[in-house]
């Protein structure tokens, strides 16, 4: 595999290899000198057609910590706002000698198109495409960093496996993903990856925010957060952001009111207390405090939200390493 386009493409072995590599990368990030010479001379282009702060910064940090050169390209104020097509942007990047393109796009499937169209790279010098979020489709590095965080906390420390759970999968763990599943690529990627790694997933959302066809996904669904928290006892609760910018008719199209959503599906102090003692609270960010998550829950010691950000750098370093470090001719890039 030469690209990282979808969490569904990853086998269990690929995913564990990525997480184990991320664990070693994370270990280097506690050193005084965090920079490694591994990708010296390689060029990584961050191609962002959609606003993003943390994912772009995270990818940029990861590439720089591995000594790659980073070029940031955002659609705003660029040739794209003058009407350039994805194809012409890709051809431009290719002629500049990019080795990897990290792409975020509002259209589902844009990274796949970039990877398989032949616009980027040749047989001799392929260009790796990393999906940093496309439409409502996939966000594989977010799912990987979530799985890494879950493994570190619930397999490594609590499970007694030691060494951050290196080499282990997530068999037997229960993860509840709560909120705006309909618009969430994070939820889709997590359902794929967590299932691959052996965890059970329940999606909790109001009926209007579950997509059509969700019954074919490898997960359970629920409309009732309280029943799921007390009856199912999840090991991790992942709160999703309510994506108001994607709800075309204003929030009224999907929700009666933000207050009602918050009361039925928000993680507040009472629901936090109903969780098992070892359970962790996650959020992919950015948070709407007071809507899907209360300040008490976000700032509690159960919350691993800040740690997720740090783990994001390690996971992206691992993805860049596995896609870029090996020889281009060697047929061994087994990601």
């Amino acid at each position: 595999m030469r690209h990282l386009l979808s969490a569904a493409d990853l086998s269990r072995e690929d995913a564990i290899r990525l997480l184990d590599t991320a664990a070693q990368m994370a270990a280097t990030q506690s050193r005084e000198i965090k920079k490694l010479p591994t990708l010296r001379g390689r060029t990584v282009v961050n191609l962002f057609f959609e606003d993003s702060t943390r994912t772009r910064i995270s990818f940029e940090t990861a590439a720089k910590r591995l000594s790659a050169d980073v070029i940031n390209f955002s659609a705003k104020g660029s040739s794209v706002s003058k009407g350039e097509s994805l194809k012409d942007t890709a051809l431009t990047l290719h002629s500049m000698g990019a080795d990897a393109v990290v792409v975020r796009h509002w259209a589902s499937g844009a990274p796949y198109q970039l990877a398989h169209s032949g616009w980027l790279g040749t047989v001799d010098s392929p260009v790796a495409v990393l999906n940093a979020g496309d439409g409502t489709h996939q966000h594989p590095t977010q799912a990987l960093l979530d799985a890494f965080t879950i493994r570190r906390h619930l397999v490594g420390r609590a499970g007694g496996a030691g060494r951050d759970g290196v080499g282990k999968d997530l068999t037997g763990l229960k993860v509840a993903i709560v909120g705006d599943v309909l618009h969430s690529r994070v939820a889709r990627s997590n359902v794929n990856l967590l299932h691959t790694l052996g965890a059970e997933v329940t999606l909790v959302a109001p009926p209007t925010l579950l997509p059509v066809g969700v019954e074919s996904w490898t997960c359970a669904t629920s409309y009732d957060l309280d029943a799921t928290l007390t009856g199912w006892c999840p090991d991790a609760v992942m709160m999703l952001r309510v994506q108001r910018e994607r709800m075309s008719g204003g929030s009224g199209a999907f929700l009666p009111s933000p207050q009602e959503y918050s009361r039925r599906y928000g993680l507040d102090k009472r629901r936090l207390g109903a969780l098992p003692d070892h359970a962790i609270v996650m959020h992919p960010g950015p948070m709407n405090r007071g809507l899907e998550i209360s300040a008490q829950a976000a700032d509690s010691d159960r919350s691993v939200i800040v740690e997720q950000v740090a783990n994001g750098v390690a996971v992206r370093m691992a993805a860049l390493y596995l896609l870029l470090a090996g020889g281009s001719s060697a047929e061994g890039t087994s990601l």
Binding site: Q24, A325, G326, E331
Partner: peptide, 12 residues
Amino acid sequence: LHRNPTRTIGVT
């Protein structure tokens, strides 16, 4: 690194 298949990173 660039001449070989991707190596697995060990523990330091």
